[in-house]
Amino acid sequence: MAEMVLEVSGLTVRRGSLTAVQAVSFGLAAETDTALVGPNGAGKSSLVQALLGIIPHQEGEVRLLGHRLSRQGRLPEAVRAQVAYLPQTFPLVGRVPLTVAEFVGLGWDPAGLRWPWRGGEQRRRAVVQALGKTASQDLADRLISELSPGQIKRVLLAFCLVRPRRLLVLDEAQAGLDAQAVESFYNLLFQLRRTEGWTILQVSHDLEMVRRTCTGVLCLNRRLRCSGPPNHALQPQQLEQVYGRGYVPYQHHHAPSPPLP
């Protein structure tokens, strides 16, 4: 039986008086790539944020690598270090004078108080290696505010790579990218998933890309409406349960590509 990286049981998340996610249960086996799909306001971002302890959850249980996440979102540091999260955007990124190497180094630093010069050489080596794996070496001394959206995504992957991780959670990774950049991002992500042994959970609106790249799909509209492999979960009758009647998936205009290997 495959090792379970994430186990969710009866999870309910409230934001103020609104129930964003209700009684959701699912599990992610190691080295799978699962998409979380659903209409706007379905609770996708709330769900992934609750799974990572970014926001508290009110009911149910979340286990990450076998460790229980507290309701307030606390997790042992050794477990948290193996989980990486990429939010949709960083609104303040343009204002912060941070180089790519400095940013990726933040992904290496363990949590808690420590002098910034501790582990400097190890950090530097890990950063160089991570930038190399994402073909971003030439960006090391550039300010992140100067990068294109595609470059930022590569650097974010380097941020995840700088330490060994088991679970990668992406919230609409393709947001802000053009079709070519989406293609190139997913190619890199897929390649890294195989070489790094990542388990991926990604929020996505691009059902075509989900069909091509993911091993599983979770369809959410406050509750989990359906789940399974893409060829099952993305059937029109299943999608109607999530998006409502008359739903017509948007066809992207980039050239159709074969499924990623």
Partner: peptide
């Protein structure tokens, strides 16, 4: 400073 949710996700 960069992003609160990223910071929370890193503990």
């Amino acid at each position: 400073t960069l992003d609160e949710s990223l910071a929370r996700s890193r503990g």
